[in-house]
Amino acid sequence: MSLAKRIIPCLDVDDGRVVKGVQFVDIRDAGDPVEVAKRYDQQGADEITFLDITATAHERNTTVHMVEQVASQVFIPLTVGGGIRTVEDIRTMLNAGADKVAINSAAIFNPGFVQEACDAFGSQCIVVAIDAKRVTTDDGSDRWEIFTHGGRRETGIDAVEWAVKMQKLGAGELLVTSMDKDGTKSGFDLLLMKEITSRVTIPVIASGGVGNLQHLVDGVKKGGAEAVLAASIFHFGEHTVQEAKEAMQAQGIEVRL
């Protein structure tokens, strides 16, 4: 009897459609967000995350409408990310039916925003998304650095130190994505996950690189993640969420079945 590890299908949304690219190219249409969300709910998904991958002002309204539609039919936690920059953005998404918002770039440009958001809405609904890439330092050792703009722009910020700082500012959860692994189907960056999960006391969602069910197991067992996020393996019918949970349970992980 204890808390279950979570499986979170991630829906990248572009102008009201679910899409999935491989390292931001070769974008494939994966369906209508409401239909996709309902399917994952029926399969036993523990939460659903929407990432608005373009997040222009025009598409913001499309996203708000989409969240409203999903929230009136799907009764599990919904997280919305992409272009969340102000307290008003958060309020709009929560009022539309989101339970949590993921803050990414805005935290980097203004870390105080995380604290402001937590003070206004509570830590429980503030997820900080961290996009990290492995870099080799001058002395030859590896570290992880935060990148913005879809991995194109480096910030010089150490991802592990950043995770610790975000927890201090009040973040309730971290969504950690390996930019190197994202879309490669070669598994999570387990070293990165382990580094971060061993340094923070808040839950960490592992993201980026899931290609098979063993990768989900490894994210929990080797990476120390409380939740695992995946897109492609679910979108294109390779596996259901139910199968993923059965695979995790078969290896001794507590899941909600």
């Binding site: 009897m1 204890s2 808390l3 279950a4 590890k5 979570r6 523990d46 830590s123 429980q124 309730g172 959860e173 006391t201 808040i202 839950p203 409380e226 939740a227 909600r256």
Partner: peptide, 10 residues
């Protein structure tokens, strides 16, 4: 164990 207690429990 992590805090907040977040997720599905019995």
């Amino acid at each position: 164990l992590k805090m907040p207690h977040m997720g599905w429990n019995q």
